[in-house]
Design a binder for these strands. Structure first.
Lengths: 398, 398
DNA sequence: CTGAAAGCGCTAACAG
DNA sequence: CTGTTAGCGCTTTCAG
């Protein structure tokens, strides 16, 4: 019998503090079987072995048991062993919630993303979870679904659950606002987007430069009627990326052609036909994000437009199987897992009090993956492979 | 001044219990400003407004404030309003951890997946999180990375954090074992795979039948040297799927051709060339899971093998852009979001005590999406679209 | 090196 | 309808 029930132990080892309470306790919904070998707790059934029980079993005080639990040094090896044996024997499981209540730490970090189905999000989440685990933290995951109200209430919920820090990829809409519910010196790391009017740590890329470089690449191939395609143009990332596009076009003395839609559902075959092909007579298209890419790719295909032959194509955001589409799709690759990795590292540094006290802004490098759709012949097969090859991999560091 | 600090309130309203402790408290790292309008908590800075504070501010007892917090009915509208105003004024934030300690519920469910980068996993997680949110639960996410030991320790960690229920897609390896650390009447729902020697609720598909149907489809196209390709053949899902393959082949009086590898990294171009093409002279390939598909697709492409022309192809697991590869890839589609949705529904029903008491096993339907790689002309464009179109969508029900 | 006592922020039992 | 009292399971002073 490894897991003696609470009642059993209470009955058997009344101990020094057998106050009236014991009786009241027993009468309130427990069954005590006399035979002494089988006891069932009905009320608080599962796993109610507490540190008190451990201490009693080991014949030490509660505090001593607590010391063992917390690996404090000042415990003689004999008591240490006694307590550990008691823990094992009883099948003791510390209650992290109770632990956190007094100690004011929950060993929990919160993470909020916009859409888990976006490769950016799940790769980041994956890395965050991995780093958190190694450092003894768990992560509560929430998803805003691009809704500022949901975002706000999710953050609120996380705070109520006493997260020690927050990693968030903010919706970033003008209406998005949760700064007022963040406690003053709370640790927050933003991903992908910065927060207006806030000075949180952040992990981002140089959106503007990344797009500028990509557009320059298209220009070098001789395309001139390059069209930038973006959803949610009010997003900080969109704004920056479009600025990068403009930079490159302006420098080349060419007219900017920009097609913006609020939501990817607007990017239909007909719309592409009308706007991209008829209106702008684009000879190349560069998308500003993943959903855009998927929508445009699908729409163009159904238009019987062949990538590169009729219109060159560059995607912002690389994706699985970009190297399997014909022609293979050139893309700006963000280091999605690194995002999560760095964010978690920043946050945990803060929580542990190691690392710098000043605001940290990490800017991660992107890479232009030249495949065929931009007009190139891919040179390095490894580079050209889509992110799929990294499935299951997390950069191991630290 | 909406957020008065704890010290301030302690100093101003000493109340009945002004024990020596108060002094010690103040001396240990707080700054009290005399002017009476500005106070800063240094020690326990953020958000330490408690229900006691609210009660005091509202001039009611702790319990009454608690009643308001819990929306209990027996509160007069005048006190209700008083308390609510006090809460708003103080910027009160309930501590869910403390709440859970006494009430023995954490409003938290745990979820463990094998690999978050797998479309199956993130779609399921997404749905679980959504359903949990709507029902007032938060979800702690963990990932086993296919490692039984990690899986076990993650489950252990979740239990320590007092999750009320667990949704897990088990590693399912022979060494995988965490049953002994699950408390007796704990609520668990398994996803994708069942647990040996356990009678948890589960959400699965009919793997055997799904594959049998797909193979039969290939047979109807006249292929005879159909090869089944699988990783991790010891997995329950793999076993079932391979059984389905055998069923169909046997029924057709054809020889089964099965190529198994432990890990997808074995599926190289050379390996495919040797095993699939030279050794088996396969005229069709059916993969048994997503990683297999990606690896095989990539390997075949680099072999200058054209899908359908040289070898037909069916993928178990549909994927984004399956309709963008040339030829488009036929696939067995699992309802990935439904998995999560149903699992969460089952679990929350259990937690709330609604719904049946007996073990529930939900078997979700799959669909064969006939595109071109199996030899078909796709009929319905909508069906043929890859799952990408569903980005951002969650089935709203209940 | 060890223990007793006092809570963390909240809910629950039981009176009024 | 409201308040009092006793904890949830743990950590934390502060004494030995």
């Amino acid at each position: 019998m490894t897991t003696l029930s609470r009642v059993r132990r209470r009955l058997l080892t009344v101990g020094p503090a057998s106050r009236p309470r014991s009786l009241a306790f027993i009468s309130s919904g427990m069954i005590a079987v006399q035979r002494g070998c089988l006891c069932m707790g009905i009320a608080r059934s599962s796993n109610s072995v507490t540190l008190v029980d451990v201490a009693r079993e080991a014949g030490v005080s509660l505090k001593t048991a607590s010391r063992v639990l917390n690996r404090e040094v000042s415990v003689s090896s004999s008591t240490l062993e006694k307590v550990q044996r008691a823990m094992a024997h009883l099948g003791y499981r510390p209650n992290e919630l109770a632990r956190g209540l007094k100690a004011r730490k929950s060993a929990t970090i919160g993470m909020v993303v916009k859409n888990l189905a976006d490769p950016f999000a799940f790769n980041a989440v994956k890395a965050v979870q991995e780093v958190a685990r190694v450092n003894g933290y768990i992560v509560i995951l929430a998803s805003s679904g691009w809704d500022p109200d949901v975002e706000r209430s999710e953050v609120e919920s996380l705070i109520r659950h006493q997260i020690e820090g927050l990693i968030i990829s903010p919706v970033g809409s003008p209406k998005s606002n949760f700064l007022d519910i963040i406690p003053p010196d709370f640790h927050v790391v933003t991903l992908d987007q910065p927060m207006r009017k806030a000075s949180f740590d952040s992990v981002m890329i140089d959106n503007r430069r990344s797009v500028r470089n990509a557009v320059q690449h298209l220009l070098e191939h001789g395309y001139e009627r390059i069209l930038a395609l973006s959803t949610r143009p009010w997003l900080h990332t969109s704004v920056e990326r479009i600025a990068g596009y403009r930079d490159a076009m302006r420098k080349a003395g060419l007219e900017s052609r920009i097609a913006l839609v609020e939501h990817e559902s607007s990017i239909t075959r007909e719309w592409l036909d009308e706007v991209v092909l008829k209106q702008h007579k684009a000879d190349a298209v560069i998308t500003m994000n993943w959903v855009c890419t998927i929508a445009a790719l699908r729409g163009l295909k159904h238009n019987d437009k062949r990538l590169r032959k009729d219109v060159a194509f560059v995607s912002f955001d690389d994706f699985d199987l970009a190297d399997m589409i014909h022609p293979t799709v050139s893309a700006v690759r963000q280091p999605t897992e690194e995002f999560g990795y760095e964010a978690a590292r920043l946050l945990i540094q803060r929580l542990k009090g190691t690392g710098p006290k000043t605001q940290q802004s990490i800017v991660l490098p992107t890479r232009f993956i030249a495949r065929e759709s931009c007009g190139c012949k891919p040179l390095n097969e490894d580079d050209a492979r889509s992110p799929a090859k990294r499935v299951g991999l997390i950069a191991k560091r630290q």
